[in-house]
């Protein structure tokens, strides 16, 4: 102690402390940041056990005690962690009420609970894993390619601007304006509800990243033309025309008509 106390005011102490603190924070972050997806993909034994408990409490009444499926709900054997992460993480599951399809909602479970459930389901049979941070990194993706892929593969249901569209019998392709990259990736991987599966053979990881980059552009880009009217196209334009635009013109006509008297 005497050794340290004596050198307390040495000029190199400040630098040494700073480097030490940075090393702790940096290494700590790296450890946490890289470990978490791996955890979700593989899952520790305790996590799997916690997931099983959550499953039995919240899911088994419909999906069955062994996740084998019942008359009310499909089997979850082999759907993979990605499907659980999407369905539970977007609040679609647990289902509030039977309907044409499960609507997105406020998630019922915390992120840890979702990870635990995903880890448990992943142990039942092999299935698509939750995408890694690397797979979700769309920073270098080709937005123009993403746009083309989006228009070919996604726009016929989700609409060219990602505003969603109607399917048959009350089903629908949801609006993508609030979707996170992870959920978009998982949806392509697992094909929830009416959506087809886009495996890596159909859309490579780079393609998926490009699509995510394009959807992010749609979500964030400013509208060069002014008010967007919901980007629904001619229907909302027509509604605006019939109400605001024509209302203003008629008001002007009435005003000029009254002035003459």
């Amino acid at each position: 102690m005497k050794f340290l106390a004596a050198r307390r005011r040495s000029p190199i102490v400040a630098s040494a402390l700073l480097i030490g603190a940075l090393a702790v924070v940096g290494l700590g972050y790296a450890a946490v940041g890289s470990v978490q997806p791996a955890q979700a993909a593989v899952g520790t034994e305790t996590q799997v056990e916690a997931g099983r408990q959550l499953y039995l409490e919240g899911c088994s009444s419909c999906h069955g005690l062994e996740a084998q499926g019942t008359g009310n709900a499909p089997t979850l054997v082999g759907v993979g962690a990605a499907a659980v992460s999407f369905q539970v993480g977007t609040g679609r599951m647990p289902l509030a009420a039977p309907g044409a399809q499960a609507p997105g909602n406020m998630p019922t479970y915390t992120d840890e609970e979702v990870a635990a459930l995903a880890a448990y389901i992943a142990t039942l049979a092999p299935g698509p894993a939750i995408p890694s941070a690397e797979q979700l990194d769309y920073a270098d993706a080709d937005i123009a390619l993403g746009g083309e892929l989006f228009r070919i593969n996604c726009a016929q249901c989700h609409q060219a601007a990602g505003q969603g569209g109607a399917l048959t019998q009350g089903k629908y392709a949801p609006n993508l304006m609030e979707s996170t990259p992870q959920h978009i990736y998982e949806a392509m991987l697992t094909g929830p509800q009416s959506m087809p599966v886009f495996s890596d053979a159909q859309l490579t990881v780079e393609d998926k990243q490009a699509i995510i980059a394009y959807v992010r552009t749609l979500q964030t880009e400013a509208s060069p033309g002014g008010l967007t009217l919901g980007k629904f196209g001619p229907v909302t334009e027509g509604v605006f025309l019939a109400t605001a635009a024509f209302g203003a013109l008629i008001a002007a006509a009435v005003w000029i008509g009254i002035k003459a008297r």
Binding site: A155, G225, T228
Partner: peptide
């Protein structure tokens, strides 16, 4: 007020179509 944001719809190719394709009123 935006009308017909053609940049959102993209170029036409016969193999593509968008949900909610409508004509003008």
């Amino acid at each position: 007020v935006t009308i017909n944001p053609i940049w959102v719809f993209g170029p036409f190719t016969p193999d593509q179509v968008s949900a909610g394709s409508q004509p003008d009123w």
